[in-house]
Amino acid sequence: MPHDTFLIEEMISIHHLHKAFGKNHVLNGVDLTFDQPGIVAVLGPNGSGKTTIIKSILGMVLPDEGIIKVQGEDIKGKWLYRNQIAYLPQIARFPENLTVAELLRMVKDLNTGTAHDSELIEHFGLHDFLDKRLGNLSGGTRQKVNLVLTFMYDSPIIILDEPTAGLDPISLVRLKELINQQRMKGKTILITTHVMGLVEELADEVVFLLEGHIHFRGSLQLLKSQTGEGNVEKAIASLLERRDS
């Protein structure tokens, strides 16, 4: 069982979030709170607003309407709260002429708190790459660097946007270990993914987004029992079908 070190009121609360890009209404009044430690999978078809929600929490997308609070504090116009959030972006591209070690130093310069980077470098076998320029790394290695950057701080909130993209099987196993370790520490972890196997394996809870609304929220068991399906993939498909009919 996760212990309760991080159980301070609501980790993230989103109230009545609206966002449109031009005429395209991506989020139509989303209400979401994350107050339990554990892993929440944010699912939905392309364009359903997953990334927009995540980016709103990080302050990269500015909401048209609505309030977002992180640990009880309204994030509008703030930036220091991001010390509490570790974020893994979807695409990893870094300045080409910096070395891996320099990039790590840069991110450490920007954050407060102690970094546990050496263990992670060990974990992903990045030792030989530290002095290489980022422009010369393969996509998979870059993703590993990305993972080190994300997990090196002990942040109570972790947000992973498509974390498995481009990883080889060994690193994938390592990543899952890492995510489970973090869960044991009682953190709040949000994952967006299209890989349903990962959801089945890791998630405690599922949030299913459709056209900017929350269509379903609940535990994996609830999802399965409500839809009468045995696995997540079919359950999600049946959620979609039921809406269409």
Binding site: L58, G59, M60, W79, L80, Y81, R82, N83, I85, Y87, P89, I91, A92, R93, F94, P95, V107, L110, N111, T112, L149
Partner: peptide
């Protein structure tokens, strides 16, 4: 060129 890296920086505790 640094568009994606800028996104990473935006998620750090730094002022825009």
């Amino acid at each position: 060129n640094s568009r994606e890296f800028t996104e990473l920086l935006l998620a750090q505790p730094v002022r825009r």
